[in-house]
Design a protein around this nucleic acid. Sequence first.
RNA 1: GGGCGCGUAGCUCAACGGCAGAGCAGUGGCCUUUUAAGCCAUUGGUUCAGAGUUCGAAUCUCUGCGCGCUCACCA
Length: 505
Amino acid sequence: MAEYNSLEKIRLQKLEDLRAEGIEAYPTRAKRTHLSSEAIAEFEEKEKDGIEVKATLAGRIRAMRAMGKISFAHIEDGAGKVQLFFRANEIGKENLDFFNRMFDIGDFIQAEGVMFRTKTGEVTLHVHDFKLLAKSISPLPAAKDETLEDGTVLRHAALEDPELRARQRYADLAVNPGVRETFRKRAAIVRALQNFLDDHGFLEVETPILQPIYGGAAARPFMTHHNELEQDMYLRISFELYLKRLLVGNLEKVYEIGRDFRNEGVSFKHNPEFTQLEFYWAYADYLQVMELTEQMVSHVAQKVLGTQKITYKGNAIDLTPPWRRLEMRQGILETSGIDIAEHKTAGELFKAIREKHPEKTPDPNATRGKLIDYLLSEFLEPTLIQPTFLHDYPRDISPLAKSIPGDSLTVERFEGYVAGFELCNAFTELNDPLDQEQRFIEMGRDYAADDEEKHPMDEDYLRAMRYGMPPNGGFGMGVDRLAMLLLDKHSIREVLLFPALRKED
RNA sequence: GGGCGCGUAGCUCAACGGCAGAGCAGUGGCCUUUUAAGCCAUUGGUUCAGAGUUCGAAUCUCUGCGCGCUCACCA
């Protein structure tokens, strides 16, 4: 049972008063002839000819100013804000009082009248009739907007508490127009990705989220149970193995945009469920995927933002292709002074790091691949502000990627970095079923010590691969991260409508 | 999971060991072109929860809860 605060009790009393007057606070039907922007535009067009513009508007009350025998209000609808003007002359003293007494900020209202321009020049609806569409009981944490001389809008008492904004996203959206804009743009980003891939001959598919076995990445899964089948199921941690099964089925270019689930830590760039884009492209290799990637990302920026030059955390970033290519070995050498090619075992590499950088403390038990990863994140990653494809990765941290011909320690893999963080990950996919089986076995050994991250053998995937899989290039990108990058948001929570939070109470 | 920080009115914040306050919102009044409208009056608090120290706790200590930052984890 809800407990009401004093402000809510006042509004509940208003509901009772309305009922006593026979007025429905939540009527079934509404009427609207114009969006706010349409009514304003039509008025401005016909103003010089003196043609009257009648309009019925509907929206949510954002501000009210009662001034004796007149009242002003601002309502907001899907297109923006517009001012309402009520005057006793037209609607009568009784109706004006009724509006002032019974309506609150946050209520939905329908108002019919004629557009005009006030003394101060604002295009406004002169209301002749109005109707309550839905009463708001809990006061929205509404801000007040002050428009300064230079036209900038200053917000007062805006809803800012990050917890409240995430927990009550409905209130955040209702009160902070910029948040609505963020999610419109996020939708546009996803649509632009789909259009781009569709136009390049890729087929959008949907593969299982509930899986009998998980794979395609190294992450702890969420587990669940199917009662009738009497078996445990996992929420997918990647799409990879299912999408590559489709290549076996002669679907040559496939992609999926959907949700992945990883039972791991939460941070400014990690949410337990996140949106991933993966595509697989038969007969292509990682170099072709690289080219498609830079075209795709710059295309999305152009579509959504109208430019390929963006700003992230104050850094000017140019997404225009071609992006810089940097061999990982070279990048690590330049930033850390260590040539990983000269240290072919974990022990040697560990020693080299300790000698060159005594202040650093890598894990002495790490594999060579993990140590390279360490060098990458400690030295190289922070320098990769402009878009960069870092390529050619150690084999032992890339179990699903194909080796470079003639170099068994290195695989054809790249990661795209922008603004210092990893945006995407791609490689020439391993399509040799016997090699793949061997890698699964190795992974099982590597992870045996850590029971939580056991890497299961996917027998059905191997069976598919034995039918024959064309050589192909694969690609994965966090769509939330792309949205963060393009929208200059510095936490994944800002681009997720309902980010994961601990339950209340 | 570790470290650091935060939690005060519906919202934004002050008070930092001595009467819990302001602006906005709300309520009542005045006001026929306002726009953070203005003016007058006024309501509103388990200071996140619990325990402790103290003559006295929003303030200091401990525990718990939630959030933020950060580290670890995340091939």
